[in-house]
């Protein structure tokens, strides 16, 4: 990839996304081997900065880094605040002084990775910023969809839930629309941001209608804070009117792929029997996340896109 950072899918060209997905395919083959390690990033250092609690994304990055033979360390901070303690800029300058090659950052403020990228020579990978983007999640979602459905062009993908606060939704929307998918978002009007149609999606609050003929449904997590902020009267009412249930899924194609970025609130945004449905690929997403992140690290390190295990062997030499 001819860029220093991966801050979002908005700024990527369709071909760059395809290159990442192809390369992830090769890394997916690597992690199916008994020895799941390649020397690609030997001697490189990765700093994982997590300013927000995250288990699965952090572990997924850490695994991807280990499997690429990078040296890495993780730094978790519950909150970032300019009043108490170090500023983000000071932290970044300290990290830079440790001569790292990559910074993976999760932060509660939209645009924080952009700020870091401006202030550091290392490659910055956005691991989720505020309500903005979560590009590696978008990539692993697309990768997972493509493995099941093939070409993404023309697929009807429905994103259900709290779109306003979802960086996963935004990265999915940018990536999928660039590859020609037909993207719909559905959720309560209080959780659907203004003018999101301009990102190239169709919106409705009626989940049933959105699901009509869907190839993929990507269910977003609903957080309890939304009820506290008066954006929802109750999670109970949400589950009844917007939850993805077997009844609502009858409107989708019979081979609909069910996805969720995790962690799930069973019985709220996703019914228990949907979470257990054999059409769901939720754990597959977790496995694929490691491959997608390996591909991103490899490409940002200057690697050439590869698409098969055979090509991967060439890379390893």
């Amino acid at each position: 990839m001819m860029r220093k950072d991966l801050l979002g899918l908005e700024e990527l060209e369709a071909q760059e996304i395809l290159d990442i997905l192809d390369t992830a395919e090769a890394f997916r083959e690597v992690i199916d081997r008994p020895i799941k390690k390649v020397p690609t990033l030997r001697g490189k250092t990765v700093a994982n900065l997590f300013y927000e609690p995250s288990t699965r994304t952090r572990i997924s990055f850490e695994l991807a880094e280990k499997r690429l033979s990078a040296d890495s360390f993780s730094f978790s901070k519950a909150t970032s605040s300019v009043v108490k303690g170090e500023t983000l800029k000071d932290t970044v300058k300290n990290i830079e002084a440790m001569m790292v090659d990559f910074v993976v950052v999760r932060h509660g403020a939209s645009g924080a990775p952009h700020f870091i990228a401006k202030n550091i020579a290392a490659s910055v990978i956005n691991a989720g910023d505020g309500q903005h983007e979560h590009p590696t999640q978008g990539l692993l979602d697309m990768f997972t969809m493509r493995r099941v459905k093939g070409d993404l062009a023309g697929l009807k993908v429905v994103i259900v839930g709290d779109v306003t606060h979802s960086r996963v939704a935004r990265s999915n929307i940018w990536g999928l629309t660039k590859l020609g998918a037909d993207v719909h978002v559905a959720g309560p009007t209080t959780l659907t941001p203004r003018e999101i149609e301009k990102m190239g999606v169709t919106t409705t609050w009626k989940v049933e209608e959105a699901l009509e003929g869907a190839d993929v449904v990507n269910v977003l997590r609903i957080q309890k804070e939304r009820q506290d902020a008066n954006l929802l009267p109750s999670l109970r009412e949400y589950a009844i009117h917007f939850g993805v249930t077997q009844e609502r899924l009858k409107r989708a194609k019979s081979d609909v792929v069910i996805m969720h970025p995790g962690p799930m609130n069973r019985g709220v945004e996703i019914a228990q029997d949907v979470a257990e449905d054999e059409r769901n690929v939720i754990l597959e997403q977790v496995t694929n996340g490691v491959a997608a992140r390996m591909a991103v690290l490899y490409l940002l390190n200057g690697g050439k896109p590869v698409s098969s295990e055979k090509a991967m062997e060439a890379v390893e030499v």
């Binding site: 939209s110 505020g130 903005h132 003018e195 999101i196």
Partner: peptide
């Protein structure tokens, strides 16, 4: 508006 939505900035 569109910018706050796309950038994920609280509106």
């Amino acid at each position: 508006g569109y910018m706050s939505t796309k950038l994920g900035l609280r509106p």
